[in-house]
Amino acid sequence: MKLKKGFVLREVAGETVVVPVEAELNFNGMITLNEAAKVLWSVLENETSTEDLVKAILSEFDVDEKTAQNDVDAFVQKLKGLDFLE
């Protein structure tokens, strides 16, 4: 899986925000990313798998595998719901 193209990511007033700019990304406005989502987002800019996303979380944060798996599943579900993934 991989993110679609056409997002702008910036730090604004201490928050990480993402704005979809392509018309096909049918989402008006912005979303914010927490620290874990930020890590996942950068991995998802290239083709990746759930296993690699879990590894990325485990290498960046002091959490157990089950927690990492849950975080990844929740974030991927959210991105799928927004139709942000290829």
Binding site: G6, F7, V8, R10, E11, V12, A13, E15, V17, V19, V21, E22, A23, N28, G29, M30, T32
Partner: peptide, 27 residues
């Protein structure tokens, strides 16, 4: 909340270059 509400009342751009510049300015 403040970021979203202010961004919402700024112009909507469809070009990522302008959106990036606007977000830097908003920051």
């Amino acid at each position: 909340g403040a970021i979203k509400d202010i961004f919402e009342q700024a112009p909507k751009y469809t070009n990522s270059d302008y959106v990036g510049k606007l977000l830097d300015l908003l920051n």
